[in-house]
Amino acid sequence: MTPAPLHLGAERFMLDPAGLLAWPARRTLVVADLHLEKGSAFAARGAGLLPPYDTRETLSRLHLALRRWRPTRLVALGDSFHDRAGASRLAADDAAQLRRMLDGIETRWILGNHDPEAPAALPGTAAAEWRAGGILFRHEARPGPVAGVEISGHFHPKATMPTRCGGVTRPCFVTDGRGRLILPAFGAYAGGLDAGDPAIAALLPRGGRAFLLGRDRLYALPLAGRRPRAG
């Protein structure tokens, strides 16, 4: 697994091919859109009985990343639970596993649109945004120029790399190379939105770059900027 460095502002971050961001200087790990308990949210709504193992799967991937980076702080960029009641549906052993993993780690739960309230009975503090050393962490990027550096999630970006066997689509990091970085969704059941979609493209008016998640490394793909509208 080869993480790739990314310089934003004066800071150096590492993009982890597992889909997380590490900030070595602050021993901080950043993860977006865990969507825990998405499977049970579907079941409760009668929208299909998906395999009830998504939370377990997401947590075990997170666990691996925590062991790899050994951070002192974890920032979850919102939509950590798929819905308001998500935390209350957490199975007892999954909840215990989560508490064990976060033991000794300062956890910052950024609130998202799926989980606008702090997760009950879990360690850590919740807030709409968190700022550290000129870096702003929030759930959803705000259109318009970025003052400093903004790191967010929400959009679940994915991108398609053309290869000679057709396009290969993967979740990806998206950055404008200057001040804005959007993380891929980390949850096992979190789908994706194409990085070319207007919702994401609008945030990168001058183009940028996607980093597709590979098994061992990242693959860079340029993203075109918005063109003047034709005709």
Binding site: P51, A188, G191
Partner: peptide
């Protein structure tokens, strides 16, 4: 926006 529930994700987990 289409946030598709991707069957590949379900397949991998299952």
């Amino acid at each position: 926006r289409q946030m598709t529930m991707n069957s590949d994700l379900i397949y991998d987990v299952l």
